[in-house]
Computed example of a mutant assay.
Amino acid sequence: MFFHKTKDIITLFHKAGSPASVRAVAVLKQASANASQSATEDQASDHSHQTHAQRSEFDLNVTEDPPTTDQLQTILEYVGQNKIKSVVSGANTVTEALKTFKESPDSFKRPVVVDWNNGKAVATESESEILKMVNELSK
């Protein structure tokens, strides 16, 4: 019997006017297209033993809304203590970040890419960092 695992969900917290955020959308759309293309190829020719690691398909959710407080807390856990300031301007701890964000939602830096299923997030303008996160999750 053959079961399909549900697709992972990757969310991009996007800012339309930001060149870095616009690039992140392009990078993620390309990665998504590549993943679904390779999934189709895999189904066409049965590779029971995959030799190359390719990202499995994922659903891309692009939003311009700020995260909810719960989502932000999760994102901060995913990025880790030393990267909190890359997510919320001027914050060094989760408590500071949540307080700053509550007072000023604009303190949330975009783009932020979150892979909810695999517990990873990157707040970066670096396309290679985004691709690294996306491609790491193929296993």
Rank of each mutant, 00 (worst) to 15 (best):
Asp106Val: 12
Leu76Cys: 00
Glu77Asp: 11
Ile75Gln: 00
Glu77Lys: 09
Asp106Ala: 15
Ser48Trp: 12
Asn34Lys: 07
Phe101His: 05
Lys85Pro: 02
Thr95Asp: 15
Leu98Ser: 05
Val79Cys: 01
Thr100Trp: 06
Asp42Pro: 06
Val87Cys: 01
Pro105Asn: 05
Asp59Met: 08
Ser86Met: 04
Ser56Asn: 10
His47Gly: 10
Val62Asn: 00
Ala44Tyr: 09
Gln54Phe: 10
Ala35Lys: 00
Thr95Asn: 13
Asn61Pro: 01
Ala91Met: 06
Gln37Tyr: 12
Lys99Gly: 03
Lys99Asp: 15
Phe101Asn: 01
His47Lys: 12
Gln73His: 03
Val94Asp: 02
Gln71Arg: 05
Thr40Asp: 14
Glu57Cys: 08
Phe58Thr: 02
Ala33Lys: 09
Leu76Ser: 01
Lys85Ala: 10
Glu41Asn: 13
Ser32His: 07
Gln37Trp: 10
Gln81Met: 04
Leu98Met: 13
Gln43Tyr: 11
Ser45Arg: 13
Ser89Ile: 05
Phe101Trp: 06
Glu57Ala: 09
Thr100Asn: 15
Asp59Ser: 10
Asp70Glu: 08
Leu76Gly: 00
Ala53Phe: 10
Gln71Glu: 11
Asp106Tyr: 15
Arg55Ile: 09
Thr63Val: 12
Ser36His: 08
Ile84Glu: 01
His49Pro: 07
Ser36Asn: 10
Lys102Gly: 12
Gln37Cys: 11
Asp46Asn: 14
Asp70Ile: 03
Ala44Phe: 13
Gln37Ser: 13
Ser45Gly: 10
Pro66His: 11
Glu103Asp: 15
Lys99Gln: 15
Val88His: 05
Thr74Leu: 06
Thr93His: 10
Gln54Tyr: 11
Val94Leu: 04
Ala39Trp: 03
Ala33Ser: 10
Ser86Ala: 05
Lys85Leu: 03
Glu64Thr: 14
Val62Tyr: 00
Gly90Cys: 06
Ser32Lys: 08
Glu57Asn: 07
Leu98Arg: 08
Leu98Ile: 13
Ala53Trp: 08
Asn34Cys: 08
Glu77Gly: 03
Thr74Asp: 03
Ile84Asn: 03
Lys102Asn: 14
Asp42Glu: 12
Pro105Ala: 05
Ser36Phe: 07
Glu41Phe: 11
Ile75Cys: 00
Gln71Trp: 07
Asn61Ile: 14
Asp46Val: 04
Ala44Asp: 11
Gln43Ile: 05
Lys99Met: 11
